[in-house]
């Protein structure tokens, strides 16, 4: 949401699209780092429950602040490309959709490369698997957590900015995206980027199909139904790489 809003504000200053995209993503990742520094790292005896509650608090605070500083209306953002549609194999796509798909693929590839091929990516995975063991090996867990906050902030902001021309920019646009993102992760299996990608695809296609065949007002329902079904039947996700604790 922040990504989309900041991009909208920058574009209003008639900055070029590429630059405003970069600035908004960078600013958001800085904010994410700040949040980690100020709140998460400072919390004493943090349990998972308290961190969940805290991040809920942070997200409603940010929404509230943006709702007041900017406003609560939905703002249109003009598409990135000058032509509005492209046709491929007799199918016509809106140009912004192509950009969304393209940037998703690029980001997925970069993430894959980072996590599997670079040392810092491997360290991040180690911390996610067992932070205590990672610490024993001399890894600065706090720093890794901070950089993962920065990366997720960066990607989240990019996503918000890229989707903005399709969905309009609004102070509470992020909730549904966040929830469905989580649903996609659950379906695909946590800690598995390719799984999340496929999960997102499954959910998105199921939503569109249900909007077409059942009713468009229930399309949001489908994402949650699929997520709950997967959680109940196979909580580790369809393409699990690590186990979800289950009694």
């Amino acid at each position: 949401m922040l990504g989309g809003i900041i991009e909208f504000l920058l574009l209003k200053q008639s900055l070029p699209i590429g630059l405003s995209l970069l600035i908004s993503a960078t600013v958001v990742s800085l904010i994410a780092v700040l949040i980690h520094r100020l709140f998460i790292a400072k919390t004493k005896n943090a349990t998972e429950l308290s961190l969940i509650i805290m991040t809920i608090g942070i997200s409603i605070t940010i929404r509230g602040i943006v709702g007041i500083l900017v406003d609560k209306n939905a703002h249109p953002v003009k598409p990135f490309l000058s032509f509005s549609s492209v046709s491929l194999f007799n199918l016509v796509f809106s140009s912004q959709y192509v950009i969304v798909i393209f940037s998703t693929l690029v980001l997925a590839f970069l993430l894959y490369f980072y996590l599997k091929k670079t040392l810092s990516g491997k360290i991040m995975q180690a911390v996610s698997m067992n932070s205590l063991a990672a610490r024993l090996f001399g890894i600065d867990v706090g720093l890794v957590q901070m950089s993962s906050f920065a990366i997720s902030g960066f990607i989240g902001a990019l996503a918000g900015a890229v989707i903005a021309p399709i969905s309009f920019v609004q102070y509470d646009m992020g909730i549904m995206f966040g929830l469905k993102g989580f649903a996609a992760c659950v379906v695909g299996g946590f800690g598995n980027n390719n799984g999340a990608l496929i999960g997102g695809l499954i959910i998105g296609v199921a939503e569109s199909l249900s909007a077409g065949y059942i009713s468009s007002s229930y399309k949001d329902l489908i994402a949650f139904l699929i997520m709950i079904l997967v959680l109940f039947v196979k909580p580790s996700g369809l393409f699990a790489s690590k186990d979800v604790e289950r009694i």
Binding site: M54, I56, G57, I62, R63, G64, I68
Partner: peptide, 12 residues
């Protein structure tokens, strides 16, 4: 209008 912020800050 400020209530969500108050709530959020309270939680944090």
């Amino acid at each position: 209008d400020y209530w969500p912020i108050v709530n959020g800050l309270l939680l944090i």
